[in-house]
Design a protein around this nucleic acid. Structure first.
Lengths: 100, 100
DNA sequence: ATTTAATATTGCAATATTACGATGATATAT
DNA sequence: ATATATCATCGTAATATTGCAATATTAAAT
């Protein structure tokens, strides 16, 4: 029904459409290391909720690392991060100027 | 519960979190003039649905123009557009590089 | 082998979103 | 004044999202 580009951008935006996920992304991206077990304390939501939010973020490829075992170790997938940045940039950089 | 910045970015992203609204925004931003009465045909959703989506876009200040009468006349509020662009840019431009 | 710590999954309730038909409002044209 | 065209609003159904308690899984430590 909609173009692939529009669907893709909407999908990305949807992940960022919740303050908890914005906060999580910012927190992870600013960590020196990629240990994330304190996310529950930092954000202030329950562990299952955080886990769900992380999963949404993971689904669009924004996280990389090891996802097995007790202590996960993940961080921002920088290549994907820059792809998304580029998607938004492209979207915002085309706008007509002669208007009301 | 979350910071003002996080809430604000999430609010903006929420508006972009639907392909119809992405398509609407792109269409309006690329029009020479700002007559939008053909949006229903272009997008392919019913008139009430388009109206609702437009309202969501309006709520974050992305549209300007005259909103009364038969033929509305609105277009992208360029200043606001650039503000949003900047918000996303700021969000994406801080990321740690030493990671797994 | 048990225990422990960290994360995932399930189930469910509350709420929000999306879409549209029916109807209402408003300005222009006839 | 009446009809028409355009957009808004209301009501409502279907679906999605959000959050958490309870439970399960997993790997390391004891």
């Amino acid at each position: 029904m909609f173009s692939a580009t529009h669907n893709e951008l909407a999908k990305i935006a949807k992940v960022m459409a919740h303050p908890a996920r914005v906060a999580i992304l910012e927190y992870i991206s600013k960590q020196e290391n990629c240990i994330c077990n304190d996310l529950v304390d930092v954000i202030g939501l329950s562990q299952p909720t955080i886990s769900q939010h992380l999963n949404e973020i993971k689904k669009i490829g924004l996280l990389k690392g090891t996802f097995e075992g007790k202590n996960l170790c993940y961080c921002i997938n920088q290549e994907r991060w820059e792809e998304l940045q580029q998607s938004f940039h492209l979207f915002f950089s085309n706008i007509n100027r002669n208007c009301c």
